[in-house]
């Protein structure tokens, strides 16, 4: 190889490196810029309400009084509800597909799960209005009230539209994310790991518990966190089902509201500056919460990944 080609190659490499570096930086710049822009637009509201914006429970555009707590509460509770429901099911789907199912079944079911991810959220919302909400109102909520009515979560009149409906629709929506990512991580577990467990006389369940899950746990955690990210930001389907009422009520049957939903609902008709600014501040809070949760998730994944890869018998 002549010197000339070496030189051009290194110039090419250099340019390429610079180019990709620029792209990488642009993402960072975009993030900071967005955050700054939102902070700037939210400033009138931040100055007027200060910290009471986060603790305030009244949202009254007519009287120019804004408090975001009901929205923060609604977003966190629906997302948590969705995680509680979708995580075990998603994991179950992943385990079944990877460890149990015959390959024909696996192809079909995996395809269906992927289809779930491709359905537009407005379609989920419509299905929720016409199927899920009536079913909740007539069957599920009266049942829950009958058997678990002593818990405040399950008291009150069954309405269909409310926190429970919002949480359930989110669960369906994040299920494919959790299932797909957990599935892929499990598929990446070396077969030697499984064979070793089986050779030692482990049952199938023990093999999964001791050889597969511990190996895949950081990836699974990552999948759950991605699902959480989607749940926090999901707007359309939630607003169609949650009842859109800025209130903090103990019952899961009662209507609630989420941060993304209130922004989408009221942004276009926010008729004065402070109102708009308050909505942007909600956006800023949502941005902040997502950021914090992501950092937390990174930390969690990182600390789990440092743990033992294979299972230990007393784990």
């Amino acid at each position: 190889m002549s010197k000339k080609t070496e030189l051009t190659a290194s110039i090419g490499d250099q340019t390429f490196r610079l180019l990709t570096l620029l792209m990488a930086i642009s993402v960072l710049v975009l993030m900071v810029w967005m955050g700054w822009q939102m902070y700037d637009s939210a400033l009138p509201s931040i100055q007027k309400f200060g910290f009471s914006f986060i603790t305030g429970r009244v949202w009254d555009p007519v009287k120019e009084q804004f408090g975001a707590l009901p929205f923060i509460y609604g977003t966190l509770v629906t997302s948590l509800l969705a995680l509680l429901i979708a995580t075990p099911i998603g994991l179950g789907v992943a385990i079944f597909l990877n460890e149990m199912a015959a390959s024909k079944v696996r192809v079909v079911v995996a395809f269906l799960v992927e289809m779930l991810a491709a359905i537009p959220s407005v379609v989920y919302g419509l299905w929720g209005i016409f199927v899920l909400a009536p079913w909740l109102r007539e069957t599920v909520e009266p049942g829950l009230a009958k058997w678990f009515g002593f818990i405040p979560l399950f008291q009150g009149t069954p309405a269909g539209f409310g926190m429970l409906a919002g949480g359930l629709i989110l669960a369906v929506m994040i299920l494919p994310t959790i299932a797909a990512i957990s599935g892929e991580v499990m598929a990446a577990v070396p077969n030697a790991q499984r064979e070793a467990a089986l050779a030692l006389g482990a049952t199938k369940w023990e093999m999964i518990r001791l050889a597969v899950l511990p190996y895949a746990k950081s990836g699974i955690l990552g999948g759950i966190m991605l699902g959480l990210g989607r749940a926090l930001g999901e707007t359309m389907a939630v607003t169609m089902l949650i009842g859109n009422r800025p209130d903090i009520l103990p019952s899961l049957f009662a209507p609630a509201y989420s941060m993304a939903a209130v922004i989408a609902n009221e942004f276009t008709e926010a008729t004065y500056a402070l109102y708009l600014s308050a909505l942007v501040e909600i956006g800023l809070i949502l941005f902040g919460i997502t950021l914090i949760l992501n950092v937390f998730a990174r930390f969690l994944v990182w600390s789990v990944a440092r743990g033992p890869k294979g299972g230990t018998s007393n784990e």
């Binding site: 009244v58 555009p61 007519v62 309405a159």
Partner: peptide, 17 residues
């Protein structure tokens, strides 16, 4: 209590989009 506007602090009910 509620007044008039494009969005209100509704005293009762659920909201649909």
């Amino acid at each position: 209590k509620a007044g008039k506007g494009t969005s209100l602090n509704w005293p009762a009910g659920v909201g649909g989009k």
